[in-house]
Computed example of a mutant assay.
Amino acid sequence: MHTFFDQPDLLPGFADANRPRAIAAGIDPFQYDAVTVELTSIRDWPTAFARAGREHLARAEQADEQGLSASASEAYRDAALWFHFATVLPNPDLGAHAAAAKASADAQRRADPAAEHITDPDFAGILRRPTGIRAPVVVLIPGMNSGKVEFMPIADSLLRRGVAVLAIDGPGQGELATRSHWEPEYQKVVHRVLDVIEDRSDVDGQRVAAMALSMGGYLGALAAAHEPRIRALVSVSGPSALHWDQLAPYVTDTFALRTGSATAGRDFARGINAAEIAPRIAQPMRVLDGGLDVIPGVANAEPLARHAPNAEYLLIPEGNHLLETTRWKWLPDTADWLADHLRK
């Protein structure tokens, strides 16, 4: 069995494929190019990205000491992103992975003093609220190897529209990646998230929606099928089905790492069936795909929209996975769509 790291000449294509993802998350494109061009092996990726994270962390701490709060916040946010992207490989060195994930979470906690960091047995989250109002909430759900830190620009867009955002890491995701394994019944995670939101007085726990991305697009749909408290759902580049034997080693190795074994990973993949759960999603749902998002073994999200009773499907022909290269074509309108449904 070939693993991800056994593939020849892997580095250039991997760096190119992840460039839009990193830039969309907020990493400076010039620094990304400067770091990746110096790599001679894909195995050097985690070390190089963690080194860049430490450089930003040092700048942040220096700015903190000088009382330069804006510069410190920006540098902490950069550090959190670089540490996060050090974890996107299916790295068998779990110690290094855990250290980078912890460093990312710690830096993110220091990046935005106004944000609240929620620690729960079932998830970790960052709650950001508009000032002066008791706002409705959108829950951001990450995917296969993403995490709450990666979608802060999306959170910014929602905040500008008067919506609070709770970005989460569920079991096996983000800062919890090496402390737990994925939960195939992800609706249980979201159920707990909604309970926490409902118990708060500073947000409107009766008006909650979700935006779910990549594999999270399926996890969010699964949650909506079980949770009527979710008023509306946006699913971006979520799979409707996975065919294990056709998946690339990057995906199968990541599944094995995040579930605990290749057998568990295969079982998790086989359990993804959007056409089966879609008829139970009564809420308004917007499903988005990119026409250039072609991943071996992954069926796109069109069946999710087709089988759901109250869904719309938007295909952006020139869009990549997560539509990062065409964000201006869908995010403003989709953020408005969510805000509008939360006002009803």
Rank of each mutant, 00 (worst) to 15 (best):
D253S: 10
P171D: 09
E175C: 13
V203G: 09
Q187H: 15
E183C: 13
A241W: 06
A135R: 00
H226W: 06
D195L: 02
D245W: 02
A167T: 07
G205W: 02
K188T: 14
I133M: 13
L213C: 00
M152D: 14
Q187V: 11
G174E: 07
I168C: 06
L166I: 04
R229A: 14
A209Q: 02
R160T: 11
G143L: 12
P171L: 05
V196F: 03
G205E: 04
V165M: 12
P153C: 09
S180N: 05
L166T: 11
V196W: 07
V149Y: 10
P228T: 07
H226N: 13
R200L: 01
A177I: 00
V149F: 08
W182D: 05
I141F: 02
G147A: 13
R229E: 09
V196P: 00
S180C: 10
D199I: 01
L247C: 13
R192T: 10
G220F: 02
S235Y: 02
R229H: 10
W244P: 06
T131Y: 12
G143H: 07
R160V: 08
V190K: 07
V189R: 01
L159C: 05
A248D: 13
D169R: 10
A232Q: 06
L242I: 09
D202I: 03
S201L: 12
S237G: 15
P142D: 08
A224H: 11
T178M: 13
M211C: 14
P153N: 09
P153V: 03
P249K: 09
M152N: 12
A164D: 08
S157N: 08
E150D: 15
P142R: 02
H243A: 14
L158N: 02
V138W: 00
A210D: 06
L140V: 15
D202W: 01
D169K: 06
R161M: 01
G220L: 03
L127C: 12
D195T: 06
G132F: 03
P142H: 11
H226V: 05
N145D: 15
L242S: 00
Q173W: 10
Y218H: 12
G220D: 05
G217F: 07
L233H: 02
Y186S: 10
H243E: 14
V137I: 04
M211P: 00
E175K: 06
L222H: 14
G143C: 07
L127P: 08
